[in-house]
Design a protein around this nucleic acid. Sequence first.
DNA 1: TCGAATTTTTAGTAATTACTGAAAATGTGG
DNA 2: CCACATTTTCAGTAATTACTAAAAATTCGA
Lengths: 187, 187
Amino acid sequence: MNQLPPLMHQFVSHFGEMGSRWGINRTVGQIYALIFVSAKPLNADDIAEALEFSRSNVSIGLKELQGWRLVKLKHLPGDRREYFEAPQDIWEIFKSLAEEKRRREVEPTLSMLRASLMETPGNAADAHAQKRMQQMHELIDLSSTWFDDVARLSPETIARLMRMGSSVKTVLDMTDKLKIVRRKNEA
Amino acid sequence: MNQLPPLMHQFVSHFGEMGSRWGINRTVGQIYALIFVSAKPLNADDIAEALEFSRSNVSIGLKELQGWRLVKLKHLPGDRREYFEAPQDIWEIFKSLAEEKRRREVEPTLSMLRASLMETPGNAADAHAQKRMQQMHELIDLSSTWFDDVARLSPETIARLMRMGSSVKTVLDMTDKLKIVRRKNEA
DNA sequence: TCGAATTTTTAGTAATTACTGAAAATGTGG
DNA sequence: CCACATTTTCAGTAATTACTAAAAATTCGA
């Protein structure tokens, strides 16, 4: 790890430190960071050597990164070993990550909430609890459906939307007015 | 905990189980869930008793929840104890959570990236790494600025935007055309 | 300011998670 | 299908994190 060039080293170390906040461990964070910034696909031994981790630790880390769909397996011609690389398109990465996060961190809660909302509360406390769960369900459902929809747009469109910032409101208001005018004209 | 009515119990247990995936621990998850679904503010003893946790564990958990700005401290007249409740407005909750997450999980990385981008790479590997960091910085910066902007909109406007789903694209295209027409007219 | 109620800190312990080296399993070219 | 290169699993250990009970500190009314 110490023979990595300075920028790579800084990036890798940072991902190691942040790992725990992001719900992955130091090792997995560093492995991903290394793969992300490397120009060429890396094999497990490359990684173990560069980061000074045991070979088995790298193996487990790579499995986890595959589970997150953050690294792609690649085979180089004339080499039996498995090589890994990160998708080139950063939007692609962002979307996989978001989808996977939703699957793991949001969907289970949505299911639980849906189930709870089907039941009939047996007392006042549960009745209130159900109302709160209803509110939570509504918000999560709305934002996660929305995310899905937006993720389907092209990166360019998404970027365009984002660059608009809060002026989307103006656009929204404008289209509402257009709709009203159209409705009047039709009448 | 077992004398909680069924819906509350289910909700609280679920938050306990999900806690670790969300980067908080079981205890903190359950404490929050209990406060969230309760009709009235709760004090630390209420919580310790309901969930069968030690008093100190509850104290630490509440501290953490305050750090996340997920619970508000409230004082009841004629009672010296501290009571806690979750904000009523679910959008408020969503925003605090997102802001806090950004502050802890995103900002440090943005800083690191910015610093790295200022430096001059000393070799080809670092030059490539810097390009990747540039891509990452661009995406994170764009989406986090955007989130800030959107968060400033009213809940109604946000909901309206979200309900549009992927048809925002149509609106975006439409406004682009309007701008072009206007530009032509002005010329 | 004293003292009881309440909260916070702390030190020790339990539980969980991360990591390693070695052994087992897998897969592939010959 | 053998031999070997490579990956995966596993059992043991290290490190971290969570939790408790008890002590200390704080707060506030009298």
